[in-house]
Amino acid sequence: MRKTAFLALIVLIFSLSLNAFTLGDLGEFKFEKANDNVYIMHGPEEEPSKKNEGFMNNPALIESQNGLIVIDPGGNYNVGKKVLAEIEKVSKKPIIAIFNTHKHGDHWFANKSIKEKYPDVPIYALTYMIEQVKDNAADTWYGILDRLTGNLEGTKPFTFPSQGVENRQTVVVDGQTFIMRHYAKGHTDTDILIEHVNSNTLFIGDNLITNRFGAFDESSSIVENIKLLEKIKNQEDGFKKYTLYVPGHGPSSGEISKTIDPFLNYLNIIVAGAKKAYENDIPSYEIKSEVHEELKAYHSWDAYEGQMGKHLMKAYSEIEMLDF
């Protein structure tokens, strides 16, 4: 009898291993308990590619008494299926709500995988974000991710968020309280930061990224992103000390020095370099090598070579506009 039970256990473990969310030499990805009833799956810290199948964000899971709440389930239908399988390893409770932090498809295209199984699940996002993705932002990101990953099959038609929220709005789902925070510009103009009151967790979205770099598009502001991170760090404008800070990409932590500071310091160095170039009436590329030397701690971050110069140009243009 004992031998039979042991063999059954071995079969179960082997079965779970076969069904694990695995991305080649990038390893296995699963939800791990990060804070009270909060679980995070930390995605690969790199740009979207065929290798990572377009998965590189941090899906989050909050377990309530009667169900599960998901934040940013991932970047396509196929990834969403794998994320959903990992969710079901944490709990068999139904998914009762989804939150999307901003318009970029690498965070919300996987809505479709969850909605397929739970057709009545409400999906929350900033009202303006919903307008943007229904206009052209979804198609723009579909084109980007399809070109880079080749893994968008099944993602269309898009599953858009269905419930618009606004700045400072409180949303309660099965006893779990979430406070929305929106600023006109930061990583994009459609971001919500989500404070989960029950666990004292702050989900910052792509306003905070660690170990990799992404683009700042036309709707973003490096200067305003800095102001936002400083407000979080200094506990201003209603922010407080949180037990856990969750970035859109990169490791989560309860320590400011490990979460907020690295990206904030990077942005401050970029802006300082851009200001110096502007004040000396020289183009940003002429100061790039000097800024590069100041950014030695970031040379190993994914996409540094491709993004740093663009960030410097973006900061320069913002400083120029502020001068007018």
Rank of each mutant, 00 (worst) to 15 (best):
G254Q: 02
R181P: 00
H196E: 13
I204V: 14
H249P: 03
N265I: 09
A215N: 12
A184V: 13
E230S: 09
E236G: 03
A215R: 09
P262V: 10
V271K: 15
K231I: 02
T190P: 07
S221G: 10
E236V: 08
I270E: 03
I192E: 04
I222Y: 07
K240H: 15
G254C: 07
L208D: 08
K241A: 13
D189A: 10
K233P: 07
E224A: 11
I270D: 05
E279G: 05
Y245D: 08
V271Q: 12
L193M: 15
N198G: 10
I204T: 10
G254R: 09
P247R: 10
Y278P: 07
L229M: 14
P247S: 05
P161V: 04
P157L: 07
L193E: 01
S257E: 15
G164T: 08
P262N: 04
S252W: 11
F178M: 07
L228D: 01
K227E: 14
Y183T: 12
E218F: 11
N234I: 00
T177F: 06
N211A: 04
P161C: 01
P157S: 09
V173L: 05
H182E: 12
N200K: 11
V271A: 09
V171I: 15
A277S: 14
Y266A: 12
F213Y: 12
V197H: 09
F213Q: 06
V171W: 01
V223G: 00
F178S: 06
P247F: 01
N198K: 09
F178W: 08
N234S: 11
G273H: 01
E224T: 05
K276M: 13
K241G: 13
K227H: 11
V172F: 02
L228P: 10
I194R: 01
H249R: 08
E224I: 02
F203Y: 14
G248Y: 01
D189Y: 06
Y245F: 15
Y245L: 15
N268S: 06
F213V: 09
D206E: 13
T201E: 06
S252V: 00
T190Q: 03
Y242K: 08
K258C: 06
S199Y: 00
S199M: 03
D174F: 08
P247K: 06
G175Q: 10
E255P: 09
S219D: 07
F213A: 00
Y278K: 11
P247T: 06
T210K: 13
K227G: 11
F158T: 10
F203Q: 03
K258D: 14
V197Y: 03
V246G: 03
F216E: 02
G186M: 08
F263I: 10
A274T: 09
S162E: 07
K227S: 13
S257I: 13
S220Q: 00
V197E: 12
R168L: 12
Y278W: 04
I192K: 02
G250V: 11
K240A: 11
G186R: 03
S252Y: 14
R212E: 12
L229H: 06
I226L: 04
L228W: 04
A274V: 07
F160H: 11
E279M: 13
D217C: 04
L208E: 13
K185A: 13
T243S: 15
I204E: 00
